[in-house]
Design a protein around this nucleic acid. Sequence first.
DNA 1: ATCAGTGCAAAACCTTTGCAATTGT
DNA 2: ACAATTGCAAAGGTTTTGCACTGAT
Lengths: 137, 137
Amino acid sequence: MHSLEDIRADVLASLKAAGLKETWQRRAIVDELVGDESHPTAQELYERLQVEHPSISFATVYNTLGALASVGCVQTVSLGGATRFDPNISAHHHAICEVCECVLDVPATRRERPEIPGFEVRLVEKVFRGTCAACRE
Amino acid sequence: MHSLEDIRADVLASLKAAGLKETWQRRAIVDELVGDESHPTAQELYERLQVEHPSISFATVYNTLGALASVGCVQTVSLGGATRFDPNISAHHHAICEVCECVLDVPATRRERPEIPGFEVRLVEKVFRGTCAACRE
DNA sequence: ATCAGTGCAAAACCTTTGCAATTGT
DNA sequence: ACAATTGCAAAGGTTTTGCACTGAT
């Protein structure tokens, strides 16, 4: 059982463990992202942060998200258009609605290790394209 | 058994069937893409075409690829970075090497219809991220 | 004190569009 | 002739970088 506070603390600890400094900007970014299921882009996150922290620059948001991703605290999601960031790092996949572009998490079920001769698979991503419940009326 | 000429003819016929005109630019683009397994971006295709057809504009390449995709003659592949185009329209997935960024086709095996409550799945895409044979040395 | 991080601004890259001239039908 | 397509050029969006200054350690 991990509360959001636990996750937040874990993320900040991971940053520290990687030799990255803890700044109030990074705390704010982590706070904004942890527990967020909307799969925001860097731009969206930046705009949301502007409300409470108008002095944070886009570059800081962008770079911090990259740092979080490289440390493994967030997943990046490339579905066309801008990269989205996902604080859910459990094994899961994504469904994207072709109407409203919303992104849903899809729990991973069976584990797959398909045979691709010579290719060493590190990660399998699945993208389900279709129409979300709301857009089906 | 489809030869490249057959495929080329099919693609041009599909364009015509969709009410799109057959121009020498489109023929050249189709010729360049059919049978290509390298998953080029619009820019890459444009540069390749420059050699034989220096007067083709990037916009024409870009728009034609979009037209081919909307007619269903090519698949678009979003793996981060620029959109790639794949003339292979059979059901298959992709493996991308995290070292050299090459993209390989992976045949689809079983059919999956995971349950996502309320979500109507049209298409499942899988991306295998890892290291290709050449990059493993 | 040191050195990574920040903010700013600009560059680079990718995608898309408007429009006048051209071309397929 | 008509309408779609082209080439150009520019705009819009996304990602990345350089650099002087700030701030965490």
